[in-house]
């Protein structure tokens, strides 16, 4: 989902940056408030950030003969609600853009919009929906993690289609092409990410029960 540096036309680069900025600022305030009001959350916030940091560094092979990487943003969104991930996800993207030449500064806004904003919100929605329908914590975590991953890549495909519409079939045709690159490759990764999320939350439910209860993830 990393759109490479310089690969969005300037108008799109600016547009996505302007669109993402308020979410990231709001996210920074959400993180600051969480740390100030609940200092005991700092450990779990670190875990959520670290989880994204690890997962977005790992390129995994997929059934299509391509490789891609997970995003890991669902865990933090479920624990702390999505705004927190707008900051943490953007920090990860900035790190990769500056030090790893992966993604870029001009495409940071667009990449943050897909990975740090749409992904966490979609994942959080899937988690809440699963819980609302009577699903337990772990099924909810699985759905939330997997959907956050998939939604990120669908968003990237649509962003690219918007910037590079097909000469004959327009936006829709281009969307099909970009989704063809990203979507199917991403399905096994999303499932894998869901399973990793379940593993993480199984550890947390045993060892961080007080925090999960305070955050409303587990009933006290």
């Amino acid at each position: 989902m990393h759109i490479a540096e310089g690969f969005l036309p300037p108008a799109h680069a600016i547009g996505w940056t302007v669109a993402a900025a308020p979410f990231v600022v709001h996210g920074a305030r959400a993180v600051a408030r969480e740390v100030r009001e609940n200092p005991e959350s700092t450990l779990l916030l670190g875990a959520a950030g670290a989880f994204t940091f690890v997962l977005s560094a790992i390129k995994l092979p997929s059934v299509t003969g391509s490789s891609s990487h997970p995003t890991g943003t669902g865990a933090g969104a479920i624990l702390f609600r999505p705004p927190v991930m707008a900051l943490l996800g953007t920090v990860v993207l900035l790190f990769q853009a500056l030090l790893l030449a992966h993604g870029g500064l001009t495409t940071l806004g667009a990449n943050a919009f897909s990975m740090a904003i749409v992904g966490p919100w979609a994942g959080y929605g899937a988690y809440r929906l699963t819980r609302g329908l009577g699903g337990g914590l772990l099924p909810g975590v699985f759905a939330g993690m997997a959907v956050a991953d998939l939604a990120t890549y669908v968003t990237t495909s649509l962003q690219l289609a918007l910037a590079f519409p097909d000469a004959s079939s327009g936006f829709a045709g281009a969307a099909v092409k970009f989704l063809g690159v990203f979507a199917i490759t991403q399905i096994p990764l999303a499932i894998g990410e869901g399973l990793l999320g379940v593993l993480l939350f199984r550890v947390l439910t045993v060892n961080a029960r007080p925090e999960l209860e305070r955050l409303g993830v587990l009933k006290s």
Partner: peptide
């Protein structure tokens, strides 16, 4: 990587496109 494939598709969609900024 899918990210690189996407870059290839961009160049197919718009063969004249030149990245206007490069990594630091």
């Amino acid at each position: 990587g899918t990210d690189n494939q996407a870059t290839t598709v961009i160049q197919q969609q718009d063969p004249g496109y030149e990245p206007w900024f490069h990594s630091v």
